[in-house]
């Protein structure tokens, strides 16, 4: 047992004696979290508005990454590629909505989960057939920032990713709050029947929501290809992560989704640093369970108080 504890304690000591590494961990954690926030944000939107749980979320991400890769082969700068990829994925989302999602939207939880599971495995293999199974990356052409006398490094692309995530989130909040369509979306999320009675075209709202999600995922995919790697079968990790974040944050709470993503990103870095990489994911899901439990106790106390 001591063989396990001692290195952990040593790792912890590093953070105390050289606090500069905390900065590195937090910066990395925030940028990791920002990328996950994009996928989670889209999921929360779709889940909140249409109650569809999109298990193919990660595969939309991978598809966006591959579209970006394809464009870069034709000489498009990956950062620029974000725009056409977003548009293409928006269109793709619309098609998928019309073909599949539309028909399962009113059904129970597991029907949509199953339909999107079918979609996920289909997309994986189509990507595999079209682009081959190779692990791909995109070159952003950006350098890195050195902070605090070179003790802390952060790549510019991560900063860009973080910025993009914030911009997208703010844009979405403004769109939902101020635009006519945004109001329709929010109304539909609260009560689809009432919205329909009041003249909202809920079908259009659903389609739009799903397509926006698809576009966001596509953008996330291009960023992921620039920061990490893409492969047709790696999408599932992003789906799981998005579900974890949305569940932990609570449905319908968009700012919380962003904050939870960022928080989880940082916590994951710390657990990887102190406990070791093998405990990174276990920490995240363990934390999810704790949050769920904690919420449940709150809920029970609330119920008791009501009685």
């Amino acid at each position: 047992m001591a063989g396990v504890i001692v290195p952990m304690w040593d790792n912890f000591q590093i953070l105390v004696t050289a606090p500069v590494f905390n900065v590195q961990l937090i910066l990395n954690g925030l940028s990791v979290g920002a990328v996950f926030a994009l996928a989670a944000y889209g999921l929360a939107l779709v889940w909140g508005v249409t109650s569809v749980k999109n298990l193919a979320q990660g595969d939309f991400v991978m598809m966006g990454g591959y579209l970006g890769y394809e464009l870069s082969l034709h000489g498009v700068n990956p950062i620029v590629a974000i725009v056409p990829v977003g548009v293409l994925m928006f269109a793709y989302g619309w098609v998928i909505y019309a073909l599949i999602i539309r028909r399962v939207i009113e059904l129970d939880l597991f029907t949509s989960l199953l339909a999107t599971f079918g979609l996920a495995i289909t997309m994986q293999q189509v990507l595999n057939l079209v682009f081959g199974p190779d692990v791909r990356t995109l070159k952003s052409g950006f350098g890195r920032f050195e902070l605090l006398d070179g003790m802390v490094d952060i790549t510019q692309i991560r900063v860009v990713a973080f910025g993009l995530c914030i911009v997208l989130a703010v844009a979405m909040v403004l769109f939902l709050r101020n635009s006519r369509m945004g109001q329709a979306i929010r109304a539909t999320a609260q009560d689809p029947r009432a919205a329909r009675v009041l003249g909202v075209n809920t079908d259009l709202v659903y389609a739009l929501t799903f397509s926006i999600n698809s576009a966001i995922c596509g953008v996330a995919g291009v960023i992921i290809a620039m920061i990490w790697v893409i492969q047709p079968f790696y999408g599932i990790a992003y789906s799981v992560r998005a579900f974890v974040v949305v569940t932990a944050a609570g449905l319908g709470n968009f700012p919380a989704v962003i904050l939870t993503s960022l928080g989880l990103g940082v916590i994951e870095q710390y657990s990887g640093f102190i406990l070791g990489a093998q405990f990174q994911q276990a920490t995240v899901v363990g934390l999810l369970l704790v949050i769920l439990m904690w919420r449940q106790t709150l809920l029970r106390r609330h119920r008791l108080a009501l009685q």
């Binding site: 449905l251 994911q281 369970l289």
Partner: peptide, 25 residues
């Protein structure tokens, strides 16, 4: 079992993933 609906689904998913990760570690 205090969790309901999708929370229960994701909670149990979390248990399964955690079990796999911990066994792997």
């Amino acid at each position: 079992f205090g969790l309901r609906g999708p929370y229960f689904a994701i909670g149990t998913l979390g248990v399964a993933i955690a079990a796999a990760e911990l066994t792997a570690a």
